[in-house]
Computed example of a mutant assay.
Amino acid sequence: MTKKIIRTVEELKIPAVASHQVYYCQSKERLLKEIIVANEGMNGSRHYLYNQATLDDKEDRFSHLPPQHLLALEEMINHWLFLNDKQLIENLIFKYPQVIVNKVGKVNIKQPPLNYSATGSSRKEENDLILAYTQRAQEIFGNH
Rank of each mutant, 00 (worst) to 15 (best):
I100D: 06
I100P: 10
I100C: 11
I100Q: 04
I100V: 13
V101A: 14
V101P: 00
V101E: 09
V101C: 13
V101S: 13
V101R: 14
V101M: 10
V101G: 12
V101Q: 14
N102W: 00
N102G: 13
N102T: 01
N102H: 04
N102S: 13
K103V: 03
K103N: 11
V104N: 01
V104I: 13
V104M: 03
V104R: 02
V104Q: 01
G105D: 07
G105H: 06
G105P: 04
K106L: 04
K106Q: 09
K106P: 04
K106C: 06
K106W: 00
V107K: 02
V107D: 05
N108K: 01
N108T: 03
N108W: 00
N108C: 00
I109L: 12
I109W: 02
K110M: 08
K110D: 02
K110F: 04
Q111F: 14
Q111A: 11
Q111S: 07
Q111M: 11
Q111H: 12
P112A: 06
P112M: 01
P112D: 03
P112G: 03
P112W: 02
L114F: 15
L114H: 12
N115M: 13
N115R: 13
N115E: 09
N115Q: 14
Y116H: 12
Y116A: 11
Y116R: 12
S117Y: 04
S117C: 05
S117L: 07
S117P: 06
A118S: 08
A118T: 11
A118Q: 10
T119Q: 02
T119W: 04
T119S: 10
T119M: 00
T119I: 13
G120C: 03
G120F: 00
S121M: 11
S122M: 09
S122Q: 04
S122P: 07
S122G: 12
S122K: 11
R123P: 05
R123C: 15
K124N: 12
K124Y: 09
K124M: 08
K124I: 11
K124F: 07
E125Y: 11
E126A: 11
E126G: 06
E126H: 13
E126Y: 14
E126D: 14
E126N: 10
E126Q: 14
E126L: 15
N127T: 11
N127Y: 15
N127L: 15
N127E: 15
N127K: 15
N127G: 03
D128T: 10
D128A: 08
L129V: 15
L129I: 15
I130H: 07
I130G: 04
I130Y: 05
I130M: 09
L131V: 05
L131I: 09
L131D: 11
L131Y: 10
L131G: 04
A132V: 09
A132S: 10
A132C: 06
T134C: 05
T134P: 06
T134E: 12
T134Y: 02
T134K: 02
T134Q: 07
T134N: 08
T134H: 04
Q135D: 12
Q135V: 06
Q135I: 03
Q135L: 12
Q135S: 05
Q135G: 01
R136S: 08
R136N: 09
A137N: 06
A137M: 08
Q138R: 07
Q138G: 02
Q138S: 00
E139K: 02
E139I: 00
E139P: 01
I140E: 00
I140Y: 01
I140W: 00
I140P: 02
I140M: 03
F141G: 01
F141P: 01
F141R: 05
